[in-house]
Design a protein around this nucleic acid. Structure first.
Lengths: 194, 194, 194, 194
DNA sequence: CAATAAGCGAGACGGTACGTCCAGTCTTCTT
DNA sequence: AAGAAGACTGGACGTACCGTCTCGCTTATTG
């Protein structure tokens, strides 16, 4: 929630807050993190947190964005299937990576009952990732590797949907082989001699 | 906690608790539901809740299972694509249906930071749904409408993954047309000439 | 509350209850004793306690009476002052004696806000003790060792009052020497030359 | 030059808490007073009570001290017996006076199973009263009205002991005539001709 | 170059809910 | 038919945090 309060904030305090939130979340788990706990760990007054963030989730989102800066870029070797396999493998690695995946999953969970957070999470984290994916898809479409009549966003969901489905409903991410199977099945037809 | 604890519980109280939880969740939203609130609305001591359920989410899960009893069966007209389109449309309708979808989404959210709930939710709600889907997929495979070398569970994720992805990350469910597009794209090949 | 309920009670259970109450009171202190605790320690249903006693204090009173059965008799050597000194020393020893004094003090404390208990405690424990003291005082009066115009009960209070005052307001009982001083001062005149 | 509260407590809240405790104790009796009840009546969070007092009894003690500020001073007419009779009559009147006696008795009762409270009660209420009595006794000793070899504290117990004994063990305070008898008997000798 | 206002740490405040314990009653099953 | 076992409603416990609110203190302009 930070970006538009350039007034007087102490950048040092803001950093300490975000840092404390990340640490606590790893140490005791998202559910047990409290704003009081963050404030005390950061050596900061509670008001300083309330002044700049609407909820603990918002603090954590700031932290996650920092950590995740340039996650999983889309390579372009000319072979869309190979590139997707590489990228998805990297992306999925993040989902189980110790700090990032933990925080990301907690935020997605929280967003299910916090509309403001859902909005924020989507705009600042998810949409940018989808947009970067879109670009690579569109490139592949222009190169004739993917049917041009498909909405690129649909393609993203066809590919990432199964991963998130598995992750959010079982807590585990697909094995690399399963990842390949998802991509292959999506590119091939499911019908016998498609 | 499942319906038939062999011990001594008052079935009447259990019903009142679950009912109160469902009502409160609809009225004030999952995040603001408290065990105290449920107990007081149900006219029940808090201990009675703690005795039989580990958390408010567990109560709600019981309620959801009751509500959702025989959700979205898989028709069998012999045409797997048509049948899936019909079933998914019905299933997705549940996800936005006022009580059911609300509760389901809240529980999925909560399960992201409550491992016990995640386990329960998966075993009692999600796996049974997946198994029923598997059966229809396997039937289609035997009938030669779907490639036999695909893991039926993979097929389920290919189909439902995009729906959940959209739903959980934006809060909205795909339009019927989009739903058809998902199924069509999955069955056709994504590459230009299939 | 025991004595007059000859109906069908299980004497064995009653004993176990009283015993458990005494033990718990010594182990964890009166304030932390609960009826549930007594029942569970005694291997008895809570109802069995509620059937026969109105409160935990009543159970304890039964126990105390049992323990204290024939406390501190009044000797009769013909010398009232010497006899009182002996008796009070013995009586005071009970007040600090590990189980008895503990329970007695707790009951006196509780009786300050439980009128029914106060009644019971007085009738079953305190009055009998006072009556026995009265008898010895009256004997001394008949023997001309104490002024005959004094209400014996007043004499008892003059003697025991200072002891209880000290005990209940400081938690300690007077030293033997102080005890003698109380008796001597009461028997002598407080004015300079009698 | 601002008003420096050494501690941070809100004096207004503290007053409301004490007031509420006093009122409740009168209305429903000490045993039924709860910290929740006090907090709610005072319009104060429970924490505010727990922050500054260790128990409901401690709150009540504060209230009692306020009410009882300058209780029963010792007159000095030169006649110690007459002065004591006057003072004790006044003091005993307090013990039955509606609010004060009620609270005082409850606190003495509670102190029997709460050592911290007993300490507090003694230091802040009882000892000061005893000290004031001591002074008058010592004056009388210097004036030759009381034997100089008696510990003044012993004298206080000889006089007040019987009153407290009667009060705490029967719930009633001695009649004025009985009070006089106590004093007279203590000053005269109890033996037939001194 | 004070003064003055903001941000800040600290933490008290009125509250809500937690999860636990126990009271006193009621029900079921055992003996 | 009593008693043990223990579930039931309900109230209070003492704790943890919520989000708001002073406090003084430290800075950083600005009149």
């Amino acid at each position: 929630m930070s970006p538009r309060h350039p007034e007087r904030r102490s950048e040092q305090s803001a950093k300490a807050v975000v840092q404390a939130a990340l640490e606590l979340c790893q140490e005791i788990g998202y559910a047990k993190v409290s704003i009081e706990g963050i404030a005390s760990r950061a050596g900061v007054g509670k008001n300083t947190i309330y002044r700049w963030w609407p909820s603990k989730a918002a603090v954590l989102l700031d932290g996650l964005l920092e950590l995740w800066g340039g996650a999983a870029p889309f390579p372009d070797t000319g072979d869309i299937v190979a590139d997707l396999k590489a990228q998805m493998r990297a992306a999925v690695a993040s989902l189980i990576a110790d700090p990032v995946g933990l925080h990301y999953r907690a935020l997605i969970g929280e967003a299910q009952h916090d509309a403001a957070l859902a909005q924020d999470l989507h705009e600042r984290l998810i949409r940018p990732m989808v947009l970067r994916a879109n670009e690579r898809i569109e490139l592949a479409q222009r190169q004739g590797q993917i049917r041009g009549d498909l909405d690129p966003e649909l393609v993203v969901e066809l590919l990432y949907g199964p991963v998130y489905h598995h992750w959010l409903l079982t807590g585990r991410t697909p094995e690399p082989a399963r990842l390949d199977a998802i991509i292959d099945a999506t590119f091939a037809s499911m019908t016998p001699q498609g």
